[in-house]
Write a protein that binds this DNA or RNA. Structure first.
Length: 425
RNA sequence: CGGGCUGUGGCGCAGCUUGGUUAGCGCGCUUGACUGGGGGUCAAGAGGUCGGGAGUUCGAAUCUCCCCAGCCCGACCA
């Protein structure tokens, strides 16, 4: 019985369990590169011109058939159709992506996943800047009084983390660790916006935020996570609305579709689902491997609600005082969870080439006496790197081939290229 | 905040009902050999205050009480 509990430990929380749904069609291609080709990854086949120098008998595995197609592959992960939440947890662990921290709901992002996250950040950041927004950084704590001033709610929010002690004594006024920064940035917007000439004010910040979620799940809902939050102020409702839509389509959807290779649906949240204080909330929803949708990013029109509370006002060209119209929008490390669940299958994660830290792995299948195979493999690695392909050589001689092949498959490397001495038919 | 349950090497577990030699097993880890075309085989090893405290007892992982932490269901969820 203990086992049952243990197994379920990281399993799906409410609304996230079950719905077994197998994925159609296994990979049956005879070619390793094809078989692990991820989303948006074209088949990589060596051509004549790409043939590395070396003895003529050397052959890429991608050109031949596996010697034993019927070879049984022992499952490494819990199959998705059996228990999707557990499959997810298995992938996180075995692909060395992330693990739980000692404090409830906290997360440690391991290097392989962090490298992917960094590339996601770079892609999103470039798109944000292309809309004219600038990056800034604001403090991570705010005064409780400020937080309480938040529109539309004055109740105690249980997900807030509050700092009560610092400097060796109890604070007179406890500090709230930001769950989002509308209130903090609102104060500065009020100072920085005086004239219609100061608008639009387009700010973005990359930061961590803390929300003491009751049902944490790695990447999808953690107590602390990394994200980007944009905050803008505009002169008119129309401008604000248009900008919120622009962010959602030109930044978020474009990134998700063209970089992450995840189709998204843009939806409008109902009044009940809206961000508190928003007049309209738009979201990118993506379909996961278990047939459920995941909210991958949101963009809010805040009307004049926040401007009213924080007094973000300006003089227009006619000389009369006006209230600004604001927006806020964000995407987070949740996208990593979405990436895993949208593309992953029973063999592991699958990383789109544009965010893959390792795009191609050249595996030396087996050692050879004269070192010709290893030399040829190194040569092709050099060639690929010179061509701008992020390539890694896997020549670990002390690990069995199967172990290494499975490792890379779990990690979802877009292309695995195996090299070894030619074998007679 | 209600209801249920669990804490034993890095991870996952057995042992507890009925107290009794040196607390076991799988995975992982270390070393060596044989291997190597999808988590290979064999051998030898390292690693544990049994969540914490108190109590009962000749003797506690095991029984009793208190505390702590975590998990599941519900509620909640920017």
């Amino acid at each position: 019985m203990g086992g049952v509990h243990r197994r379920a430990r990281h399993g799906g929380g409410a609304g996230e369990g079950g719905h077994p749904q197998g994925r159609p069609g296994g990979r049956t291609g005879p070619c390793l590169a094809d078989r692990r080709a991820g989303p948006g990854c074209e088949r990589v086949r060596p051509t004549r011109g790409a043939d590395p120098p070396g003895p003529p008998q050397l052959r890429s595995r991608t050109d031949g058939a596996l010697p034993s197609p019927a070879m049984a592959r022992t499952p490494v992960l819990t199959p998705q159709g059996e228990d999707f939440p557990r499959w997810y947890q298995d992938v996180l662990t075995k692909a060395e992506l992330a693990e739980n921290g000692p404090v409830r709901g906290t997360m440690v992002i391991r290097p392989y996943a962090d490298a992917i996250w960094e590339r996601m950040v770079a892609e999103v950041d470039a798109r944000i800047k292309a809309t004219g927004a600038e990056n800034a950084y604001f403090r991570c704590s705010s005064r409780r009084a400020t937080c309480a001033a938040r529109p539309s709610t004055s109740r105690v929010l249980p997900e807030l983390a509050v700092v009560t002690h610092a400097g060796g004594k109890e604070l007179e006024e406890p500090a709230v660790v930001r769950p989002t920064s509308e209130t903090v940035i609102g104060e500065y917007m009020a100072k920085w916006v005086q004239s219609y000439r100061d608008l639009p004010l387009l700010l973005n910040q990359w930061a961590n935020v803390v929300r003491w979620e009751l049902r944490p799940r790695l990447f999808l809902r953690t107590s602390e996570f990394l994200w980007q939050e944009g905050h803008t102020a505009h002169a008119t409702a129309g401008e604000a609305s248009a900008y919120a839509v622009r962010i959602l389509t030109e930044v978020y959807r474009d990134f998700m579709v063209n970089v992450l290779a995840i189709p998204v649906h843009i939806g409008v949240k109902t009044a009940a689902e809206r961000f508190a204080g928003a007049t309209n909330t738009l979201a990118c929803e993506a379909m996961m491997g278990d047939g459920k949708a995941l909210q991958m990013g949101t963009s809010h029109e805040l009307g004049q609600n926040f401007a009213r509370v924080f007094d973000i006002g300006f003089l227009d060209s006619e000389g009369s005082q006006q209230l600004a119209w604001t927006t806020s929008w964000g995407v987070s490390t949740r996208m990593m969870g979405g990436l895993i669940m949208a593309h992953g299958d029973d063999s592991g994660m699958r990383v789109p080439p544009r965010v893959a830290e390792v795009q191609v792995v050249v595996m030396v299948v087996r050692g050879d006496d004269d070192g010709a195979v290893a030399a040829a493999a190194r040569s092709i690695v050099d060639e690929l790197i010179a061509a701008g392909v992020r390539t890694r050589l896997d020549d670990r001689a002390d690990a069995p081939f199967g172990r290494r092949a499975t490792d890379w498959e779990l990690k979802g490397c877009p292309c695995v290229w195996s090299w070894g001495p030619a074998i007679s038919p």
